[in-house]
């Protein structure tokens, strides 16, 4: 059952990706000021939205883990954090590649960019923390605490950076994304968002399956160990 829904999902992902890139190259118009480079937008924005989705899942799963102590919530939090960090990394890579030819600079301390960078740091910290705790239960609990506190920090970071920006003005170059978007661009964007959401789900499910298998392998190893002990005793 799970295998079948996985195959359907992968097929849908392939179709959606093909449709998305088809629309990017053959349907969406070339932006008049920025030129063809603007098409990075169709990858950059869906990646960013799905990264935020991932961090939302980390928060929710961490919260549920603390309430229930069910390891499946810890696995979900870990998987979402890893895929979320991957997507955030790509947002931070595609952003400067877009900015350099259009604005002549790699980076600007704009509110959205800065928030993305701070989020990336918080969740890289989350993943690093997990690597340095041996006991699985302690790891799950402490990571969940970071998953919860890290996320409630997000609105504070956002308001701080927003206000800081208005006080230390720089040339406004980011512009309101989505404002005055050509309808064909908007349609393409939505297809791309759908495709990248499917990509997120596909990666997330694979990561989650590995975590479940790892738990199973560990249980089998413990069983074998117990059986050996039993055999040695009798």
């Amino acid at each position: 059952m799970a295998r079948r829904s996985g195959m359907i999902l992968d097929a849908a992902l392939l179709i959606a990706m093909a449709a998305a890139f088809g629309m990017i190259f053959f349907y969406a118009p070339i932006e008049s000021e920025m030129g063809i480079v603007q098409k990075i937008f169709y990858v950059h924005v869906p990646l960013a939205w799905n990264a935020f989705l991932g961090f939302g899942i980390v928060f929710f799963s961490s919260f549920r883990y603390l309430a229930t102590r069910d390891p499946k919530w810890d696995m979900r939090a870990l998987s979402a954090a890893e895929v979320g960090v991957l997507f955030t990394t790509l947002v931070l890579i595609t952003g400067p590649i877009w900015a350099k030819p259009v604005w002549g600079i790699w980076w600007t301390w704009d509110a959205r960019l800065t928030l993305t960078l701070v989020l990336w740091l918080i969740y890289v910290g989350y993943l690093m923390l997990r690597r340095y705790i041996e006991s699985p239960e302690r790891r799950a609990v402490l990571a969940a605490v970071v998953g919860v506190t890290g996320f409630i920090d997000v609105p504070l970071v956002y308001f701080a950076i927003r206000w800081w920006r208005t006080q230390h003005p720089q040339p406004v170059i980011a512009g309101g994304e989505g404002s005055g978007l050509d309808p064909r661009m908007a349609t393409t964007l939505w297809i791309c968002v759908a495709a990248f959401t499917l990509l997120f789900v596909a990666l997330y499910r694979r990561r989650l399956a590995i975590e479940a298998m790892r738990a199973r392998a560990e249980a089998l190893r413990d069983d074998a160990e117990a059986a050996r002990m039993e055999g040695a005793r009798s």
Partner: peptide, 28 residues
């Protein structure tokens, strides 16, 4: 520039998917 950005995404996502597949094979 556009191709560079798309290539970066494709390489990173592909690399991650391959790593997951390898992990899965090892666990199986």
């Amino acid at each position: 520039w556009l191709l560079a950005a798309y290539a970066a995404v494709a390489i990173a996502v592909g690399g991650y998917a391959l790593r997951l597949a390898r992990l899965k094979r090892a666990l199986v």
